[in-house]
């Protein structure tokens, strides 16, 4: 087992867009990371029984983490974004954990994988711990801490009203009148 007390820093930072596509036939949603320079909306195409249309582009970044002590690199290709939980569902495991952690001045952040979620958990507990360690190593932890958890804790994606920490809708000077479900 490694003896290294890892110090995690971002590496291979790539800025781009998380593209959201929706099928108007089955209402399915899927996402992918794009490095195109001029992302566009609305282009529709057919793929077997699906009719996909790009409904959102969120400016984002993709990164890996490297330990400055031992050089180990941890890949986060499967990370689509980080989500701020708005506490929309009292019975959701994310909200239950959030309520508990807030008493300890620990703020919860949800790591989201690309959609649709596969049958395998994209984020191992070790990957979540490393991401948590990275953000805590960047902060004054005597004041508060960060805890990153996997999106697999979310009870129901279809009613989740969490908010991605993405650059989308940032030019609006008006807050949305009503929060809508993510998907």
């Amino acid at each position: 087992m490694s003896e290294c007390r890892h110090q995690w820093n971002m590496t291979n930072v790539r800025f781009g867009f998380v593209a959201f596509e929706k099928c108007f036939h089955c209402s399915g949603v899927r996402t992918f990371f794009s490095k195109e320079e001029s992302p566009h909306l609305g282009e529709a195409y057919r793929e077997e029984e699906h009719f996909w249309s790009r409904v959102e582009n969120a400016q984002s970044l993709r990164f890996d983490l490297v330990c400055s002590e031992c050089g180990r690199v941890e890949d986060y290709t499967e990370l689509m974004g980080l989500l701020h939980c708005t506490g929309c569902l009292p019975e959701c495991e994310v909200e239950i954990l959030q309520q508990k952690l807030e008493k300890e001045k620990t703020w919860l952040v949800v790591a989201f994988g690309h959609l649709p979620p596969g049958s395998d958990e994209p984020f191992s507990p070790e990957k979540m711990k490393i991401l948590t360690d990275h953000f805590n190593q960047r902060r004054d932890t005597s004041r508060s801490r960060i805890r990153v958890v996997s999106f697999s804790l979310i009870k129901d994606f279809t009613v989740c009203k969490g908010e991605f920490i993405h650059d989308v809708g940032m030019l609006s000077q008006e807050p949305p009148a009503e929060r809508k479900p993510l998907f």
Partner: peptide, 9 residues
Amino acid sequence: SDMVSDVMA
């Protein structure tokens, strides 16, 4: 910066 992704990085 005016981009949250830039700030996160």
